[in-house]
C-alpha cells in the first residue's frame, strides 16, 4: 500500500513525531511504500539540524534523517517541510535564508522545503494519508 504521513506537532513536546516515526518504520518493514512524510504546524521543527538532545535520549531529527536513505525498495522517503509554516517559525534552508537576507540556515539536508500542494498531492496519490498530532 502507498502511504503518506502528516506530522503536526514539534519534537519532544509531543509524541506525534515519535509515533509517526514508529509507524513509518513498521510500514516500511511490512513492505509498504511511504510516498511522502509532510511536516506541518510545529511539526516543521522536526527538521532542525541544530537539535541537540541529551545523550541518553532519542535523536528524533536524526532518526527521520536516517530513514530518508532507506525505503522498502531502496528509494528515498520524502521528508517535506511546509515552507509557509517553516518560515514563520524560523526554520530556513540555504535558499530561503539567502532569499530573506538571513545569515544562517537550520534545515537538515535530509529534509526539503516545499509548498502545501505537496500535502494535497500526497493525499491524492496515496492509498492512505495518516495524520499525527492533536
Amino acid at each position: 500500500m502507498k502511504i503518506s504521513i502528516q506530522i503536526n506537532e514539534g519534537p519532544y513536546q509531543h509524541q506525534a513525531s515519535d509515533s509517526a516515526y514508529q509507524f513509518t518504520k513498521a510500514a516500511i518493514a511490512k513492505g509498504h511504500e511511504i510516498f511522502r512524510v509532510f511536516f506541518y504546524h510545529d511539526g516543521v521543527d522536526n527538521a532542525s539540524r541544530f537539535t541537540v538532545p541529551p545523550q541518553d535520549d532519542r535523536h528524533i531529527v536524526n532518526k527521520w534523517a536516517e530513514l530518508g536513505i532507506k525505503n522498502a525498495d531502496g528509494s528515498d522517503v520524502e521528508l517535506v517541510v511546509c515552507v509557509a509554516a517553516a518560515l514563520r517559525r524560523g526554520m530556513l534552508d540555504e535558499s530561503e535564508a539567502s532569499k530573506n537576507g538571513i545569515d544562517g540556515n537550520n534545515i537538515h539536508p535530509a529534509f526539503r522545503i516545499s509548498g502545501l500542494g505537496q500535502l494535497i498531492e500526497a493525499g491524492i496519490q496515496s492509498d492512505r494519508l495518516v495524520v499525527f498530532g492533536d
Partner: peptide, 13 residues
C-alpha cells in the same frame, strides 16, 4: 489559520 491555508491551496487541485 494554517488549516484555512491548506484548504485554499488545495482548491487549485
Amino acid at each position: 489559520l494554517e488549516s484555512l491555508e491548506v484548504v485554499l491551496i488545495a482548491a487549485a487541485f
